[in-house]
Write a protein that binds this DNA or RNA. Structure first.
Length: 360
DNA sequence: TCTGGGGTCCTAGGACCC
DNA sequence: TCTGGGGTCCTAGGACCC
């Protein structure tokens, strides 16, 4: 796929917190912090999202709630309300579908649109993006940031470039100069670990990275990743915008009231999670073939035990039974206290979304 | 100041098959 | 004494993302 495409990335601004501001207008202008409480009592848990007022105090996603409270005790702390966010997300995706034939929802608050067939050039694309932003503001009452570029990789970086309520266009001839000064972690797919290794090699910016040979990158990061890094650093990305086929896995994970090695506590928790997972499977009319037990030890290391069944299953009983066996095996193998336990099913069959026939 | 919960994608080694 | 090559599936773990 040559890069003569026009790709739009839409990213909602501080989504969860903005949803709460919409529902509770009295919150506007105050620092708002959306929290995931662990259930261990008090302020145990982590920050999921915060609005820009809260970010001024250093309150950002991932930090402990207790720390956020020290940074600003007067901020408004709210628990996540996923149902609300999901329904608002659905409304936003509907609007995007009205403007673009191909919409790939990337997460609850982000999507790519391939608007190549909708506009003649990047100037028209910019006008269309402005219309989309208006439509979302008018109909949903939220602001977002948009990025337009010849591919997904650059469009995503562009949407993040000016926030909130931004609109950034990167034309094909501007891609290299746009990327050059940015940090390597601005490339989606380059995280903390990869950045550390790059920094050790004296590579800090995407421009630095593009000067490494493919051979150097491959010998350091392996064939697939190295080759991808060379391309990405030059702003080359040919992955198509595609409707997602449906989810690949469904899981539930929870923090235990206290760290434990007690098999009974773990099995009781697994029973509860099995029920929740099978409920989700039922909604989506899916059968699974593999079950994974997830144990996170007190040192925050993740361990898994999984099993693939000979034939697809869909009932809560099977999940419960297999998960129980896996949990027992796990306890024998890792005689370590657990902080969190989880369950995941995958290898789905059943109501896969239908093929789109319109194109043929 | 103690650290949530939901995902996707990739890798490496071993089993197994032709 | 030396002993192919390719493919797929499964398990466990890791990096990364929101």
């Amino acid at each position: 796929m040559p890069d003569n495409r026009i790709i739009l990335h839409v990213d909602m601004d501080y989504f969860f917190a903005q949803c709460e501001e919409r529902e509770h207008p009295e919150l506007k202008g105050k620092p708002v912090v959306i929290c995931v409480y662990s259930g261990r009592g008090g302020d145990s848990g982590a920050v999921s999202t915060s609005n820009y007022e809260a970010r001024k105090f250093g309150i950002k996603a991932g930090i402990p709630i207790s720390r956020a409270k020290k940074l600003n005790p007067d901020a408004v702390f709210l628990p996540v309300n996923m149902e609300l966010y999901r329904s608002i997300s659905d409304d936003i995706m509907e609007i995007l579908r009205g403007f673009s034939d191909i919409v790939e929802q990337e997460s609850i608050d982000e999507a790519f649109c391939d608007i190549t067939g909708k506009v003649a050039d990047f100037d028209e694309a910019k006008k269309l993006a402005a219309q989309i932003k208006d439509a979302i503001r008018q109909n949903v009452g939220l602001t977002c940031s948009a990025g337009i570029a010849p591919n997904k990789l650059v469009a995503k970086i562009a949407s993040d470039f000016q926030k909130p309520d931004g609109l950034t266009v990167v034309k094909p001839e501007e891609v290299r100069t746009f990327l050059e000064p940015l940090k390597v972690t601005d490339l989606i797919g380059v995280g903390k670990k990869t950045a550390e290794r790059l920094n050790e090699l004296g590579i800090n910016t995407i421009g630095d990275m593009s000067k490494l040979s493919i051979g150097e990158l491959v010998s350091e990061f392996g064939q697939a990743k190295g080759a991808w890094m060379k391309q990405a650093s030059q702003g080359i990305d040919t992955t198509p915008v595609q409707e997602r086929e449906g989810t690949e896995q469904i899981g539930r994970i929870t923090t235990l009231k206290e760290d434990t090695k007690d098999l009974k506590v773990i099995l009781d928790t697994i029973d509860r999670l099995s029920g929740e997972v099978s409920g989700k499977l039922k909604e989506r009319k899916l059968s699974f073939r593999s079950v994974t037990f997830i144990g996170i030890s007190t040192d925050f290391k993740t361990h898994t035990k999984s099993r693939t069944l000979g034939a697809p299953a869909k009932d809560a009983g099977t999940i419960k039974r297999v998960a129980n066996e896996l949990a027992r095996d796990f306890i024998v193998q890792y005689p370590t206290a657990l902080r969190r336990v989880g369950l995941r099913v995958a290898n789905f069959s059943g109501e896969k979304s239908q093929m789109t026939l319109g194109e043929f």
